[in-house]
Nucleic acid binder design. Structure first.
Length: 468
RNA sequence: GUCCCCAUCGUCUAGCCCGGUCCAGGACACCGGCCUUUCACGCCGGCGACAGGGGUUCGAAUCCCCUUGGGGACGCCA
């Protein structure tokens, strides 16, 4: 059994979008699962639309997702000689021919075909002319007039295409450059690709490609055409659907593991399992459980999965990404024990890292921004004394632990005849500035004794000042 | 217009290949409740689907056909 060789061939005409990422993921997972090889190839033969910026962005996004490649990136623009050689071979063996029809003529043919209720096609005018290479000639593949070409697809099953439906398509442009179908097949053959998983928008290209494989006398790879990812309006995913690029998800505070988890579940399943670690996926991914129908992209589910992945990670793992986001908020934080504690208090209540960074803000600033509404409700005149008492008690606490804090709170509760809630909320507002925060104990413990005492005193002072 | 693909809760899906264990299971969302120092997490419960019509069969979500709906492709783009 030969090792599996898969590939991901993006064209560098923009960022890596979600649909492309999923295709890359399927190929990568299958290669990793089978101990095969995953090759990256940049399909930049459309030089007008391709850019190195796009290439960089795509590579960057793949790296962020943790999709690494064993070979490449190869660039099709650097392989022109290879294509030319194969095209020459096809002409020499009679599988292809030169055609001198002008674009206008072709347009006319198409209109004619359409008028007769047929598929718009080239009519094979130059097929038997025996033209040779000259300016303004293209090369076309000689396709069979009759019979069928069957695509054996591991996700769609066998699909038969009438050869009569296929025209003699162009494999080389008049400027001598290779067209997509030719370049892909030549690349896949020469790179040893034996498993092709791609979007089902390519299913129609497959019979054409099979014809090229056959004309070249090459073995066919295994094909698997996965359904498209659609937007919420069931239209193919496009710019107008909002966040499309993988990079946007990084900026919004999504974890690569969550994105991968979500993407793989869009069209693949493993029983009822929803949560997968990277390791799980490499172990469990298979081609048998790829779905056949298109799916819609659902941010809410991605977000839910992201929350679960945030909880599943360790604080030190989360820290580097969070630090970057804190920096965006103007907060300089270190990857230290303090930050790790901060993260732990926030993990169960953050759906994204951006959310976590915003919630973490109060830990780092010198004095929290006091929310006026919260202050009006909880930092009232009658709490000033209590807060001062708490601050003093904590200040004198030999051990700044949950036990120590509990003892203090119990005493205060008894002395002031208050329920715990009556103490906790003013305290929370004093220390965080808002009524919403992690649990009092974990939060104070993470904040540290000094800051805690300082903030409570500041709040008490604030109340006194307002009373004047 | 022609060709191709697809069709289970609002969404992602299990089940379909090898009909009965499915008056269809899980997850997200939504709605209740519990827990509780806030917000969350968590837990419990609820709502909610086999597109329609014909067959085949003792029996169909599962097999066949048609209809409808959705998607894709018909480039000197990839």
């Amino acid at each position: 059994m030969k090792p599996v060789v898969t590939r991901f061939p993006p064209s560098p005409t923009g960022f890596l979008h979600i649909g492309g990422a999923r295709t890359a993921l399927f190929n990568w997972l299958y290669a990793r699962k089978t101990n095969g090889k995953f090759i990256l190839r940049i399909e930049d033969t459309d030089e007008a639309r391709s850019s190195t910026d796009s290439t960089d962005a795509i590579l960057d996004a793949l790296q962020w997702l943790g999709i690494d490649w064993d070979e490449g990136p190869y660039f099709q623009t650097e392989r022109k000689d290879i294509y030319r050689r194969y095209i020459r071979k096809l002409v020499e063996t009679g599988h292809a021919y030169y055609c001198s029809c002008t674009p206008d003529e072709i347009t006319a043919m198409r209109e004619q075909a359409r008028a007769r209720g047929l598929k718009p096609m080239y009519n094979g005018k130059c097929r038997e002319k025996g033209l040779s290479d000259s300016d303004n000639t293209v090369v076309r593949l000689k396709t069979p007039d009759a019979g069928v070409t069957v695509v054996e697809d591991i996700v769609k099953g066998d699909t038969a295409f009438q050869n009569a439906e296929m025209d003699d398509f162009i494999i080389q442009r008049s400027d001598g450059s290779a067209m997509y179908n030719l370049a892909v097949v030549v690349d896949d053959i020469t790179m040893g690709i034996n498993t092709i998983i791609r979007g089902d928008d390519h299913l129609i290209n497959t019979p054409k490609q099979i014809l090229i494989y056959k004309a070249l006398g090459a073995d066919l790879p295994v094909f698997g055409h996965v359904p498209m990812v659609l937007g919420p309006d069931k239209a193919r995913l496009s710019k107008r659907h909002g966040a499309m690029s993988v990079g946007e998800y990084r900026n919004m505070g999504y974890l690569p593991d969550a994105v991968i988890n979500y993407l793989v579940r869009l069209g693949w399943s493993h029983g009822d399992q929803e949560f997968f670690t990277r390791k799980d996926l490499i172990q469990k991914f298979d081609l048998e459980h790829l779905g056949r129908s298109a799916s819609m992209f659902d941010m809410q589910k991605l977000t839910a999965l992201n929350a679960r992945h945030i909880q599943a990670k360790s604080a030190p793992d989360l820290a580097p990404s969070l630090l970057l986001l804190l920096k965006d908020l103007g907060i300089a934080a270190e990857n230290d024990v303090f930050t790790h504690k901060v993260i732990e208090t926030l993990q169960p209540r953050s759906k994204t890292l951006v959310e976590m960074a915003e919630s973490a803000r109060f830990y780092y600033v010198d004095a929290p921004d006091i929310d006026e509404k919260a202050a009006a409700r909880f930092l009232t005149a009658d709490t000033a004394d209590m807060l001062t008492r708490i601050a003093d008690a904590i200040d004198n606490l030999p051990d700044f632990t949950q036990d120590g804090l509990e003892k203090i709170f119990k005493k205060i509760m008894a002395d002031f005849n208050l329920g715990f809630g009556k103490i906790a909320q003013p305290l929370r507002v004093a220390v965080t500035g808002t009524t919403v925060s992690p649990g009092i104990f974990e939060m104070l413990l993470a904040l540290g004794k000094e800051k805690t005492v300082h903030r409570i005193r500041q709040a008490a002072a604030r109340i006194s000042n307002q009373a004047l």
